[in-house]
Computed example of a mutant assay.
Amino acid sequence: MQEKLERRSFLFALLLVTLAFALLLKPFFTPIFWACAITLIFYPVYRRLLMRYPNWRNAMALLTLLLCVVAVVIPVLAVASSFINEGVNLYQKIQSGEIDLSQQLEKVHSAFPGINIMLERIGIDLDQLKERLLSGVMSAGGFLAKNALALGQNTLNFFIMLGLMLYLTFFLLRDGDKLVTLLIRALPLGDEREHLLLAKFAEVTRATIKGNLVVAVTQGTLGGLIFWILGLPAPLLWGVVMTLLSLLPAVGAALIWFPAALYLYATGEPVKATVLIVYGITVVGLVDNLLRPILVGRDTKLPDYIVLFSTVGGLMMFGISGFAIGPLLAALFMAFWEIFIREFVSPSDSTPLSAGPEQSDVPDQ
């Protein structure tokens, strides 16, 4: 009786200490998550380097980290800075009247009178839609300008978080295999289940960040490039917006390039508009079908509707990091239910709900 009481008391205290420690780390959730994600992506590079120089763990981890900074961190910071500058400049031009959005929308309306009739049939007032669109653009521009100012004021905090992420990434690269082994020993879920869940975590993180992000960046880059070639304003800004939209299945970069093509038709530039539509369909649109199966794999891909809802929900809950966190939580949710159905509902049926990784794939790290 005494032993049972002591065990329960210890477990309760362990739970309290763990919750307290989790609250302690809550302000650093974003750098911790991205450190884990970057480690999963670059760990194969570290392993290959370590195979050639097995006694230089610290040096190889540092070299891998430097490769990560050069390949990922510096380009992302450069693009983000340019994106914010272009967005703020565009907002200032709209606010000052240098760019008159009402006049541009009127050109589109005049060029496509059938749009007004179609909208009226489905109960949408074009004038009200125009006001909401203008209000939304101004709100987005104001939000971007405000956050650009806040980012400038919190530069020190940003670089502290970035430094913490890189610092943690170094140790995760160097000691990741030991940490995974320790985690498997500590979790009371059963080794087979833990291997499955950790493999699913690694698999979806790589697929979401390395695969989906590469596809989105490729589509956004190609979209921004054609905007620049055609002489459309703020090509980098729209390229980044197309990159973000490309993360969402069933939405994609067409939400930007197709209205831009309509605008070109309305302003008397049918050649540019036709080039943009053909390019968007044949180049930007086909990137998803060509690259995603190679980088992500059809068997490991979540259903599009799950990806859509989990990505949007992740963005709403976690900000920009949500595009990776949302699908990851969705994949873990499906993995847990797969284990539950297989072991508790239909023990004799070993067929998984979705194609999952084999146990041998687990500790890639």
Rank of each mutant, 00 (worst) to 15 (best):
F83K: 01
F83I: 06
I84H: 01
I84V: 15
I84D: 00
I84K: 02
I84S: 04
N85L: 11
N85C: 05
N85M: 10
N85P: 01
G87S: 05
V88A: 07
V88K: 03
V88N: 03
V88L: 09
V88Y: 04
V88W: 01
N89W: 08
L90M: 13
Q92W: 06
Q92N: 14
Q92H: 11
K93M: 10
K93E: 12
K93I: 07
K93G: 01
I94D: 02
Q95N: 12
Q95D: 13
S96R: 07
G97V: 06
D100E: 12
D100C: 09
L101C: 04
S102F: 08
Q103F: 14
Q103R: 14
Q104R: 15
L105S: 02
L105F: 08
E106S: 09
K107T: 08
K107W: 07
V108E: 01
V108C: 02
H109F: 00
H109N: 05
S110Y: 07
S110V: 12
S110H: 04
A111H: 00
A111E: 01
F112H: 00
F112K: 00
F112P: 00
P113K: 04
G114M: 06
G114N: 08
I115S: 00
N116T: 07
I117Q: 02
I117H: 03
I117N: 01
I117R: 00
M118R: 04
M118K: 02
M118D: 01
L119F: 00
E120G: 01
E120P: 01
E120T: 08
R121F: 05
R121G: 05
I122E: 11
G123C: 08
G123H: 06
G123R: 03
I124D: 05
D125Q: 11
D125M: 11
D125H: 10
L126A: 00
D127T: 08
D127K: 07
D127W: 04
D127I: 02
Q128K: 13
Q128G: 07
L129K: 10
L129M: 13
L129Y: 10
E131Y: 02
E131A: 04
E131N: 08
E131C: 03
E131T: 04
L133N: 05
L134S: 06
L134M: 15
L134I: 15
L134W: 02
S135R: 15
S135N: 15
G136A: 14
G136H: 11
M138N: 14
M138V: 12
S139G: 15
A140K: 08
G141F: 02
G142I: 12
F143H: 12
F143T: 14
L144I: 15
L144E: 05
L144R: 03
A145M: 11
K146D: 14
K146M: 13
A148N: 09
A148W: 05
A150T: 14
L151Q: 10
L151G: 07
L151R: 05
G152Y: 06
Q153V: 07
Q153G: 15
N154E: 13
L156I: 12
L156A: 13
N157W: 14
F159E: 04
F159D: 03
F159H: 05
M161G: 07
M161F: 10
M161S: 12
M161W: 05
L162T: 03
L162A: 10
